[in-house]
Design a protein around this nucleic acid. Structure first.
Length: 537
DNA sequence: GTCGGGCGAATTC
DNA sequence: TTCAGACTTATTCGG
DNA sequence: CCGAATAAGTCTGAAGAATTCGCCCGAC
């Protein structure tokens, strides 16, 4: 299969806004590819490669090709298009990409660039643009409007099977190109081979969100209400003594968390897949700031030293497989029962059962349970429906998270111009709290606490794009527009964290705009002292 | 030739 | 991680 | 019973803070 065919389809996909059309374009290409494979004019690998290179979410990892040094001279358009252009095959492209990946960090950039250029010289202008974006150093990656779910739908169509079957296969083994290839070469039966396997990462189930416990329970029906811990999601596989700890994106961090491995190896089970959360706790059981937990998960050096200094506690909340039995299709209540037979209570997330959501007393109890979790320093709760199966990789209605929200009135210190859909509008706001005593600068000044662009409707974007320039001060650098501290916004956020970047030593977590407050003046904005009071240790 | 700073990428939330 | 908006799919309603 | 209106669910693309690590480059 030629690269040109993939590029053409990619461009057609970019040119259409209808999801349905995108799907059929991609499905057509894949079907065509399958026919070529059957006829022997293409290799089976081409199906996987086509799927991979069509998926807009694909990010070429560390290609080691220094496009930055080449792109300054608009090299893409300057290269002549050779007469034999348009005949490069997908596997040729993939070979060069892989080669470049392997060389990343091991050879001079000159050699790597030459390798890449020798391929690029044989491409048409369109192919060059595609490949340039693919490598990702030019203008923020490949934007073709066909993310994985679109490609997945196309794969299902081309293979003549239901989308859920493809999704299930991909979720079980996390590899859409591999599934596509098996389906289109070997037929629908091949999907059965992509099953849950201990040791192979599974896309974790995600939670939707609700404003209150009552609202969450209304969605779930009878449920378990569990503490939501502010740690790192962990999927833990045990096969005898072979233990693997995976993150949310299925990155293997086993070597970084020896204490977790030790805990799991002590459990009296032969094989299992658990889902849970890892978190650093103070000796009194209160959680440490997320930064400490996060740094444990990110740090690769001296795991022994790190685990001694900041041990992580594992709290398990689900089990997908236990001793030969797959449990993903079992209802949540059954999985929880199984989990409790395998894991001691100290390593289970605290939980309250709600049998009858129509009973106000039970709803009140659940609300109080959530308030208690927050009082103990945790994030909130996740309400899990008794009858919810483990929907791999999906953000289903079966799990609903509830977190308390704080709000502050802050002052807009500056605003940034928007990009993409928001180009032409003023979007990202720099937020400051009032500093009446001048501890962080001049008296009556303001302390920056972070930025946000979230929560703005188109109407709000219009309003602030018209209003904010009236408060502009001094020259701009073209991107950030500095403002006199006059406009107040109401900001919602999840919490306050320590910051090495901002002058007050504090930053807001997940700040979003609730509404503009033209009725308020800057002197009525909240103070840095109030923010400090919200900072929990 | 080695050390450290700067910066970007990738990852968590 | 959050959020809004565009879109798709499922359900209900009216003639 | 069918099509239209409505509700619910999904996907995309805006970008946040903090962290660690790898790579490049300049100073010594």
């Amino acid at each position: 299969m030629l690269l040109a065919d993939v590029v053409r389809t990619s461009n057609q996909v970019s040119g259409t806004s209808s999801r349905l059309s995108k799907v059929s374009l991609i499905a057509d290409l894949l079907s065509q590819c399958a026919l070529q494979v059957a006829a022997g004019t293409a290799s089976a690998d081409d199906i996987g490669l086509a799927t991979r290179y069509l998926s807009g979410s694909l990010r070429q990892r560390r290609t080691g090709i220094e496009l930055a040094s080449l792109s300054g001279k608009s090299w893409l358009s300057e290269l002549p298009t050779p007469p034999e252009a348009g005949v490069v095959t997908l596997s040729e492209l993939d070979t060069v990409m892989q080669h470049a990946s392997e060389l990343a960090g091991a050879g001079s950039s000159r050699v790597r660039a030459d390798l890449f250029l020798s391929l690029v010289r044989r491409l048409t202008a369109q192919e060059r643009e595609f490949v340039g974006q693919l490598v990702g150093r030019l203008r923020g990656g490949l934007r073709q409007g066909a993310l994985e779910s679109v490609v997945m739908t196309a794969v299902a169509d081309a293979g003549g099977v239901a989308l859920v079957d493809v999704r299930r296969a991909v979720a079980a083994q996390g590899d859409l190109p591999g599934v596509a290839q098996a389906l289109l070469v070997d037929g629908a039966g091949a999907l059965n081979l992509f099953r849950l396997m201990v040791g192979r990462g599974v896309s974790p189930m995600l939670a939707s969100s609700a404003k209150s416990v009552a609202e969450a329970l209304a969605k779930t029906g009878p449920a378990g209400v569990e503490w939501k811990l502010d740690g790192i999601r962990a999927q833990i596989h045990k096969h005898g003594n072979d233990i693997h700890v995976l993150t949310r994106s299925l990155d293997d961090i086993t070597d970084r968390v020896p204490e977790v491995v030790e805990l799991i190896s002590s459990l009296p089970v032969a094989s299992a897949i658990f889902d849970g959360e890892l978190i650093a706790l103070h000796s009194d059981g209160r959680p440490k700031p997320f930064q400490e937990t996060g740094s444990r998960a990110a740090s690769r050096v001296d795991p022994k030293v790190a685990s001694a200094r900041t041990p992580l506690t594992a709290y398990l909340f689900d089990v997908l497989h236990l001793d030969g039995t797959d449990l993903i299709d079992e209802p949540g209540s059954v999985r929880r029962d199984v989990l409790e037979t395998a894991v001691p209570p100290a390593h289970l997330t605290p939980r309250l059962r709600v049998e009858d959501v129509a009973d106000p007393a039970q709803v009140d109890a659940a609300t109080a349970f959530a308030a208690d979790a927050v009082a103990r320093g945790h994030e909130g709760v996740v309400v899990k429906a008794d009858d919810a199966s483990y929907d791999m990789g999906r953000r289903g209605a079966g799990w609903v998270k509830v977190k308390p929200v704080h709000t502050l009135d802050l002052v807009i210190l500056a605003v940034e111009r928007g990009n993409g859909r928001r180009s032409g509008w003023l979007s990202n706001l720099h937020l400051g709290a009032r500093d009446p005593t001048g501890r962080f600068g001049l008296e009556g000044g303001f302390v920056m606490l972070g930025k946000t662009f979230k929560g703005l409707t188109d109407e709000m974007l219009r309003w602030q794009s018209a209003e904010l320039p009236r408060h502009a001060v001094g020259p701009t650098d073209g991107y950030v527009l500095a403002l006199r501290p006059e406009v107040v916004v109401e900001i919602a956020f999840d919490g306050v964290q320590t910051s090495p970047r901002y002058p007050g030593g504090l930053a807001l977590r997940f700040a979003r705009v609730v509404r503009h407050r033209p009725d308020k003046t800057a002197i009525e904005a909240d103070t840095i002292e109030l923010v400090e009071a919200l900072h929990q240790y």
